[in-house]
């Protein structure tokens, strides 16, 4: 955690008694936060990005009966540069995940990730498959998980509202994207496809395993 621009722990200056009801002592961050968060939560533009079955329910949630637009979310953007929230709507496969990570990295801060449905959250019914990523949270930081296979449009709306409540808790004093040193603001390395999916962050473990396997074969020889 960091200190806000005006230290909240500082003693309030002397205020005459007759003015006490009319004066509020606060911080700049606390003054600005509601404004920032209100505008941010009510204009969450999702990336127009459908992966699988859940995308159909996402379209339903955007259509007239359920109507995202009531929450300021109806503007599906085709480019990540204009989007605020990425709804991972379906099964993430190994072939697709490099693209997803790249899209995530292309989204301007602040950006949020909603993991919609069982597959995106943990692999779902296809978890045991050989070309399925068992949960997008292995690669991207997820803000809200929505259970269901697929989640109904109501469930997606509920997840979006949870997202808004989460945004209400933010403070510009400590959000990652205004800070230089925060590790969460870093770019996620794009995974690559070798004989299987390679997470660049795990290259050292893979090399260690390979060395171990080599040693074992040397012993058995």
């Amino acid at each position: 955690m960091t200190t806000s621009p005006i230290d909240p722990g500082a003693a309030p200056p002397n205020v005459p008694d007759e003015l006490k009801d009319n004066v509020t002592i606060t911080t700049l961050a606390k003054l600005l936060d509601p404004v920032y968060n209100w505008s941010r939560r009510n204009s969450m533009w999702p990336l127009g990005f459908g992966l699988a079955c859940c995308a159909i329910e996402m379209i339903c949630a955007a259509s007239s009966r359920f109507d995202f637009a009531r929450f300021g979310m109806e503007v599906f953007r085709a480019t990540p540069r204009q989007a605020d929230v990425m709804i991972i709507s379906g099964t993430v496969t190994k072939k697709m995940v490099p693209t997803i990570v790249r899209l995530y990295n292309q989204m301007a801060e602040p950006h949020y990730v909603i993991s919609m449905g069982a597959c995106a959250s943990g692999g779902g019914p296809f978890k045991e498959g050989y070309s399925v990523v068992d949960g997008i949270d292995k690669f991207l930081p997820v803000d809200v998980y929505i259970p269901g296979c697929p989640p109904t449009p109501q469930a997606l709306l509920n997840g979006m509202i949870a997202m808004q409540e989460k945004i209400d808790q933010q403070s510009i004093a400590n959000v990652a994207w205004y800070r230089k040193d925060d590790p969460t603001a870093e770019v996620v390395p794009t995974p690559v496809l070798g004989p299987d999916l390679v997470d660049i962050r795990q290259v050292d473990i893979i090399k260690a395993e390979a060395a171990k396997a080599k040693a074992e074969t040397a012993v058995s020889d």
Partner: peptide, 12 residues
């Protein structure tokens, strides 16, 4: 910790 496997001895 993931749904991956590599051929024995494979090095990136």
């Amino acid at each position: 910790g993931k749904n991956v496997q590599y051929p024995s001895g494979w090095v990136p």
